[in-house]
Design a protein around this nucleic acid. Structure first.
Lengths: 247, 247
DNA sequence: CGGACAGTTGAATGAATTCAACAATCGTGG
DNA sequence: CCACGATTGTTGAATTCATTCAACTGTCCG
């Protein structure tokens, strides 16, 4: 059975993630790096509210709306994207279970991007006001937040490298491997998975035309690197894929 | 007199920056958003150490070096950049007076990018250990840090939009206007300034060839949008420039 | 079943790159 | 202070990788 977690909360501690249990939402993984004590996690419990489910295509928030919640994805997936003034769109991230959304905008009163569910998606909405109270009570949680955001900055920088310097093949290979790693961390299969996003979304994210993504995937398939049936992806030769991703 | 600040520390409070005086380094602007009280700023003084000067081309830190300091630029400018495995480079940021360097990597033990002075540059090196102690004492400072990093994520996302979706002309126009805004905040002239980075650096940052940057600047000059003499830039028609940047 | 959407493939086009040659400027050492 | 080599910037011509346009197929879901 593909894309089914073995145990969603069994994330390997050496990866720097600790599972957090939330009374209101049931068990989920907030993916805060290690370093929280018992009282910290109870504090977290106290502010993590409003479990919510969004269906495919539904919007979590729009640009300019008052910034109210940080979102922790429990299951499913979400895309976030920003706009140019003339309406072009750039997808800035795909977010799967265990990831946080809304970290940009903490210094702002409004959301700077739009978030939309790619499939049926369950999230916990964390009130920013209560979150702010929390971090003032618990410096260690706040320091964990600094770390998470620091990691997000690094992730974005790698994306800048991809967008600025990589060829179409390198981009697609990098993308597949990045997804693979994230699934692996969550105990999904790193070699076989379903894409929840369209070719068009992938292309948008990678700075490519949708047709280019198709062609590259077709080439990868011809060369025996992957098999793909629409959104079902199978990474056959990860090593060669890694070589391509590296350039 | 171009590129001379009227008063370096007179930054308009409405911009969300408060000038911070550091006993060890003299007066400089750390550009922490408003919200610190007197005891916070004394705390900051106590950890901001090691005023340091780097000459053009000198390296502040390299990839893989132990992460020891966050840097606050006092004067001059610094570029930060990352590498692909095969040695390609992507410049991820140019940093001028009042800006912080090293915020990515807080969750890491090593620097993930390299930083190099573009000209004679004075910085304050802030020990990460002492910084961590500080933020545990002062939640308000830490929350300011969250805000700064949140802003950095947003800035990087705009760069992703630029790299993924904008034409060469839009990129260069956006770049010039971004520099202009940053100079303006620091009471430098927003219309006339010197670039401390080469065409090659600009192109690298914007995902363009150096020659393309030249050609676009030449076109802008032909069309009366700017005048440029090598690194001396004069924005003549900001409104049209803004229109181009928007697409 | 049918209409809409998503994905694929081919051919023509184009924006930016690469290659190349040259010009202007910088800076270092005599 | 000047000269000269190195660096940086500029411009033209050829090339290329990805895009755009177009036609078509497969799949999903009401």
């Amino acid at each position: 059975m593909i894309n089914q977690p073995i145990r969603l909360v069994s994330s390997n501690p050496t990866l720097g993630c600790t599972p957090i249990t939330c009374k209101d939402c049931g068990v989920y993984q907030l993916c805060l790096p290690m370093g929280l004590n018992q009282s910290d996690t109870s504090l977290l419990d106290s502010i993590v509210k409003r479990k919510q489910v969004y269906k495919r295509g539904e919007v979590l928030y729009r640009v300019g709306q008052p910034f109210e919640y940080i979102y922790a994805v429990r299951s499913g997936s979400v895309k976030t994207y920003i706009f140019t003034d003339d309406g072009r769109v750039q997808i800035t991230g795909f977010h799967i279970a265990g990831e946080l959304i809304g970290l940009n905008d903490i210094d702002s009163r409004v959301y700077s991007c739009e978030a939309r569910a790619l499939e049926t998606t369950s999230v916990c909405e964390v009130s920013i006001d209560r979150f702010q109270e929390l971090v003032e009570k618990s410096p260690s949680i706040q320091y964990q937040m600094l770390k998470i955001m620091s990691g997000e900055i690094r992730h974005n920088q790698e994306l800048m490298l991809l967008l600025g310097k990589k060829s179409a093949e390198e981009r697609v290979a990098t993308y597949l491997l990045s997804l693979s790693r994230r699934f692996e961390r969550r105990n999904y299969s790193p070699a076989q998975f379903n894409l929840s996003m369209s070719r068009s979304d992938i292309g948008n994210y990678l700075g490519l035309a949708e047709e280019t993504v198709c062609r590259v995937l077709a080439r990868f398939q011809d060369e025996g690197l992957i098999t793909s049936q629409r959104r079902q992806i199978n990474l056959v030769d990860m090593d060669r894929l890694k070589n391509i991703a590296r350039g």
